[in-house]
Simulated assay, not measured.
Amino acid sequence: MIPLPLAFGAPLFTHARIRSTPEDFQVDELPSFEASGEGEHLLLDIRKRDANTQHVAKRLADWAGLPEMAVSYAGMKDRHAVTTQRFSVHLPKRVAPDLAGLASDEIEVLSSTWHNRKLQRGALAGNRFKLVLREVDGDAGAISERLQQIALRGLPNWFGEQRFGRDGGNVPAALAMFAGRRVRKDQRSLLLSAARSALFNQVLAARVEQGSWDQPLDGEVWMLDGSRSVFGPEPWSDVLAERLGRFDIHPSGPLWGAGELRSVDAARELELGAIGDEQSLELRAGLEAAGLKQERRALRLRPALLQHQWLQQDVLELSFALPPGCYATAVLHELGPVS
């Protein structure tokens, strides 16, 4: 994995601890729709502690006496954390077992209601985070100023280390898969995502080093804020400058796949140069052969409702909300290393 550059200057501390307890990393999923109150899909809002999403999904399937494919969720959540998220369980006979059977130290059912559709992946408005950093040895004033910069300007929209597995092992595993190693279907999807994410991060790293991660390049492809819609390239104009300034649009980078790269001119040259090494070419070829199509992702991320407070002299609490698919570690990266 390439080292990720910093957009705002040197780290403000040399080390901080996170996840000393699961309560130090809290995530609340923000739903994107209201339940209909009818139908044969039971929507459950669940708070989980120190348990991963797939483990909870299996528990729900066992509780309902159904195959795991009858349980769905909008997004994956961290294991070593306290998180709330939605699950849906398909119960065609509209008879649910006693919810008390789910109660444990890991799982608490906050609410349940019926809905007329299965919960789809990505069906969330975002996530709200509350993080506690301990053993922080840094200047409180400088940290406050850095957070104000982030709130005003946004920050690079990195894929987080979770995407790449323990010790970054998902990318080598993806290369092995592309070379012919057989993997399970669920693992295949994970490795394809890791390969795509690694290439995106390399492009974003080049833009950060150039200072253009939140600025236009000739041939830029623009992404609308809060959506996957893109447009351009088109000539730079006062209208685009105004939209960029109010975070209505963002520069974008490639999520690699088959098809023509949409960017042109300087943007295209930078993108291809950033992923032109031998390993990147192997990843690109593997993604194309796997049938993925060219897509785009915003290079810039703006946390909402960013706040901080010092709980003790060396204990910093951060809270903010992020759009779907964005990582809290991108915020932490601009402050200093955490583990």
Rank of each mutant, 00 (worst) to 15 (best):
M1R: 05
P3R: 06
G9P: 11
F13H: 13
T14A: 15
H15K: 14
S20G: 09
D24N: 10
D24E: 09
D24Q: 13
E34V: 02
G39N: 14
H41I: 06
L42A: 09
I46P: 11
I46A: 08
I46S: 10
K48H: 05
T53S: 10
Q54I: 14
A57C: 08
W63H: 06
G65R: 07
P67C: 12
P67D: 05
P67M: 00
V71S: 03
S88D: 13
V89A: 07
H90P: 00
H90F: 04
H90D: 06
R94E: 14
P97N: 01
L99G: 07
I107D: 06
S111C: 05
T113G: 13
W114S: 08
W114N: 04
L119T: 01
A125K: 10
E135W: 02
S144P: 10
E161C: 00
Q162S: 01
G169R: 05
P172N: 04
F178R: 04
G180P: 12
G180T: 09
R181G: 13
D186S: 15
L191E: 05
A194Q: 11
A194K: 13
A195I: 08
L199F: 09
R207Q: 05
V208K: 09
Q210K: 11
M223L: 13
R228E: 15
V230Q: 00
A241V: 02
G245M: 08
L255D: 05
L255Y: 02
G257Y: 02
E260G: 04
D265K: 07
D265Y: 01
A266M: 04
A267L: 08
R268L: 12
E269V: 03
E271V: 00
G276M: 00
G276F: 00
L283D: 07
R284D: 05
Q294R: 15
Q294A: 11
L299T: 14
R300Y: 04
R302I: 11
P303C: 03
A304W: 04
H308T: 03
E317C: 14
L318I: 04
G325S: 10
A328T: 09
T329S: 08
G336I: 08
